[in-house]
Design a protein around this nucleic acid. Structure first.
Lengths: 411, 411
DNA sequence: CAGTATTTTTTCGAGGCTCGAAAAAAAGCC
DNA sequence: GGCTTTTTTTCGAGCCTCGAAAAAATACTG
């Protein structure tokens, strides 16, 4: 049951609102903030004065176009970079990447590392993750505010509380409580996020006009993943991280999927599935890892001439189309972003995909569905993790209950 | 962008919260309301005193068990029946039913009518709907507060603003703006709701323990419909009313569906599909209407001995299972209520359904998924419409901005 | 049966928040 | 340099919620 609004919540929520408006708009003036939040000028003045005194916001020079206008120039408000910092950790197949990001969202330090995730034992994998974070945090050159949050992203299934990796294609290991591990190791609140969800979060910040209330981010990589935003909010399941779009059933009893079941969308559209089909292998053949370079040359071959390679992409498009069609039957069509190495081959996938969608209930407006492609998923995932961590700081650290705020103010 | 909280909103929201607590709990005392809302006793005292003076709430005798306890007995607060009234209109195949309901949720008048919806011309269908409402409203015996809302429910697709019927299986007519028609005719705000969504709303009120945050209501009738509640809120699409579960693709290119496409879940699990299959007709045969009595005797035959009837139900279960499995891959498993005439034959459907789910990604916890059945959909739909209309009154009429409230208070 | 204990509800003053109006500030314009 | 325009701050008023204390209404106890 939702809870009543107490009097103290008022200021707390409006503080969060102001911070959110500044993060979104970049350097809005107090007047602009008043307009977007619907609060009065006096309230915005009071809140921003507080935030400036607390070192969370800073006044910046008026924007360059300001000199054209008549009256008193607007003073832009910006996030104070040194107010806090966050750390992002992205663990993907054979690759680990960490970044330290200031409160204004700028990357101030980073480190990347290749490692063999598929064969690494549990302790070693965890050890690599904590070690790389420790190196960045203990770097004497690092000059940021106190680190307030760690957000880790991983391909696979995470639990619904964003605490643990339950299963991932990058390692045979399961149920690693990364959030707890990082919190215990560094004493900093941490979360474990699903990669596709972070892609969706990043898209929402990168292009809010296109990706606002309802959209879908699909990862076309070794596996097929999905991040779904509905009504402006990330949709995550009640038990696990999010939609297992790749494991919707395309053909009951069909091709063998990495998950062990048959007929999943991924068993037709994952890299290994496209490869398997292009090589003329059986649909029952065990999934194998295919490198990005191989996939790119496969796509080149498919573009060159009609043959089993092109047919493999066509079948991938068909599977994705039926999957999307079923999804659209449930949630109404929405913009789609295709991310990952096979998104670079979307020209080979799109025709069959559109044809399949058109045969489904969700395909009534199939022509109006627009697709965007982004071949490189890692920057998106990192960006999503960063924004996730930063908005947490905005809302939970810098706009807490009154007690905590005054505590900080006079400490 | 979400908007800041203005000072006046505070009281408005807390009033709404109190009304909601009373509607949910029945006859809670002020102390109980304070506990569930988290507001202080003084605030609850002030708000409920207002609401009582405005005639919206009334004190009722303490509950019978009160006499056991020691101190001052709790005074129950109840919704004042005469504070307002709402009207529900449910239009289904060959059947029109209207009820007038008081603010406390009791039916105070009703009328039902058989009519031939499939052949009726547009004007006549609209005319019947407005006429039956007019008769109930103008009945001199009717003794209720002013009617504040009309909620109409219909099987089929409604637009996302709950204003119009876009398409319905009960009539060849399309795009009837019932909400506008009713508003214009009676000067009372009206909405046009989807039947399955209303079933879900009703279930949430009937059994809040079982149907709270995430659950699914599936209508097994001529067509297959779904009402979906996620995070405690009805999920409706952005363009149309809700999930077209029945038109998810079960077998690409498969059996002919009423919608004209092929392979939809409905083309295997709708009454007409079960009938078609049981009678040994082709999967391409045109869908025909099958009466409830025929369906019941079909189910009886299927229970009696193994044969084409039993096989037809088995195939229906398989289609429903794969559809549910795909859905659960996206949203995590949740309790399911099967409603409608074929829900009475769920014993015939369930084994194949569970088997199909177990083969899908959503089926990991398939044994834990629980099904409930309710053969009669009409009472549920009406109840959902009633609650929808009443909660609208709670929130929009009795907890409006400050101006309107004081206006009402002193008028 | 009167006094005490217990629980619910109301009252009352304090503190905090937002708002509107007016004032102050900071420019460009003439 | 005065006037206009726009932004920002200041200030008093009005609400709202809260906590503490008081009042109300009952059961228990000897």
């Amino acid at each position: 049951m939702s809870v009543g609004i107490r009097h103290d919540d008022l200021r707390r929520r409006n503080r969060a609102m102001v911070l959110s408006a500044v993060r979104r708009a970049g350097q809005p003036s107090r007047t602009e903030i008043a307009a977007t939040t619907g609060l009065s000028h006096s309230t915005i003045s009071a809140i921003s004065s507080d935030l400036i005194h607390e070192g969370i916001l800073a006044e910046s020079k008026p924007s360059e176009t300001a000199s054209l206008k008549r009256g008193r120039p607007q003073v832009g408000l910006a996030l104070s970079p040194e107010a806090a910092a966050v750390v992002t950790v992205v663990l993907s197949l054979n690759f680990l990447s960490v970044a330290v990001i200031d409160y204004a969202g700028q990357v101030v330090a980073e480190e990347q590392r290749r490692l063999d995730t598929l064969t690494m034992p549990r302790d070693e994998l965890i050890g690599e993750c904590t070690a790389i974070v420790r190196r960045r945090l203990e770097d004497p050159d690092l000059d940021v505010g106190s680190v307030a949050r760690i957000a880790m992203g991983i391909q696979g299934i995470t639990d619904s509380h964003a605490r643990a990796m339950l299963w991932s294609p990058i390692t045979p290991l399961t149920d690693i409580p990364f959030a707890d591990i990082l919190e215990k190791e560094f004493g900093i609140p941490a979360t474990m996020e699903n990669d596709c969800n972070m892609m969706a979060v990043a898209l929402q910040w990168r292009d809010p006009d296109r990706y606002r209330d309802n959209f879908i981010a699909i990862l076309l990589s070794h596996g097929i993943g999905m991040g779904l935003v509905l009504k402006g909010e990330l949709f995550t399941g009640t038990h696990s991280s999010g939609g297992e779009f790749g494991h919707m059933i395309h053909r009951p009893g069909g091709a063998l999927c990495r998950c062990g079941r048959r007929g999943c969308v991924e068993a037709y559209a994952g890299n290994y599935a496209i490869w398997r089909s292009a090589m003329g292998m059986s649909e029952d053949a065990e999934p194998v890892d295919v490198g990005d370079a191989e996939m790119r040359s496969l796509a080149a071959k498919a573009r060159e001439k009609d043959g089993p390679e092109r047919e493999a992409y066509r079948r991938a498009g068909e599977a994705l189309g039926f999957g999307l069609g079923s999804l659209f039957a449930l949630i109404d069509p929405a913009p789609v972003a295709m991310v990952g190495v096979s998104a670079a081959a979307f020209d080979l996938i799109e025709p069959a995909l559109r044809e399949a969608i058109a045969q489904t209930a969700g395909g009534q407006h199939s022509k109006s569905i627009s697709f965007d492609t982004e071949p490189n998923e890692l920057p998106l995932i990192r960006e999503g993790c960063a924004m996730r961590a930063l908005t947490f700081v905005d809302q939970e650290i810098f706009a807490p209950g009154v007690q905590a705020r005054t505590g900080k103010q006079f400490a």
